[in-house]
Amino acid sequence: MSGDLRTIRALMGRGLNEILRVPGGAIPGVLAPTIFMLGLSAAFGKAAALPNFTADDFRTFIVPVGMLQGAGFTGAATGVNLARDIEQGWFDRLMLAPARRSVLLAGVVASACLRCLLPATFLLVVAFSLGVDWPGVGALALGALLIMGLAAAAACYATVLALRFRTQQAAPLMQVGTFVAILFTTAYVPRELLSDWLRAIADLNPVTHVLEGVRQGFIGDVTWAQTWPALVALAGLVGLFGALAVRGMRRQGR
C-alpha cells in the first residue's frame, strides 16, 4: 500500500475512532435525520394528497431528504471537529506531516464519507419497518454513493470555514450552509408544486439533482436520465469545495 493511501486510511481510522469510543456524542447526529423524517411526515404527511404529487406516501418522498441531511450533518460535523483540532493544536501535528496537503484533506474527508452511512442506515431501517417501499438494492447502492459524495462536498465546505475561522464557534455557519443547500430543493414536494421563488432557487441549486438522483429509486425506477445530472452536480460540488479546501490547507501559516 502506498504511503498516501496509508495516510488516508489512518486519518479515516481516527475519525471513526471518535464514534466508536464516544458513541454518546454521535447519537444526536445519527438520530436527527430520522426524527426529522418522522416529524415532517407526521406534520405534513397529508401534502401527498395534493394533485400531481409524485409519491403515494409522503414518507417515501421524504426519506431521501433525510439521507441527504445525514450526509450534510456529517459533513458539517467534520468541519466542527477540524476546528476543534485547530483550537487544541492537533491540526499542527497534521500539518507537520510531509504528505501532500490534498492527501491530508482526503483523509479528513474520507471519514465523513463513511460516517454519513450511519445516520442513513438508521433512517432506512426505521423507514422500512414503518412500511416505506423497498427501492431495490441498485437504487440503495446508488443512494449510498450519492450521499457519500454529498458528505464529501459538505465536509470540504465545512473545512474551508474551519480553516478560515479556526474556531468551533463557526459551527452554526457550517450547519446553516448544508441545511439550506439540502432543503432549498424539491425536498418537500415535486418541482411543479413549489412556490415560484423556491422553484427558481431549486432549479439553480445543484443539490436538487443529487436529491432527485437518490429519490428516483424510491418513487419509481432508476434511470440514467435522472442519474447523470446527480453525478455531474456532485462532481462539480466536490471539485469546487475540494479545490477551495486544498487551497485553504496550502495557505495555512501565511
Partner: peptide, 25 residues
Amino acid sequence: LQEAALDPLMTGSELIELQATLHGI
C-alpha cells in the same frame, strides 16, 4: 510543540503508529 496536542481518545501506541503513518512509514 508546547500544547502536546494529543487525541485523548486514542491510546499511546495508536498515536505512535498514526504518527509513523503520517510520516509515510
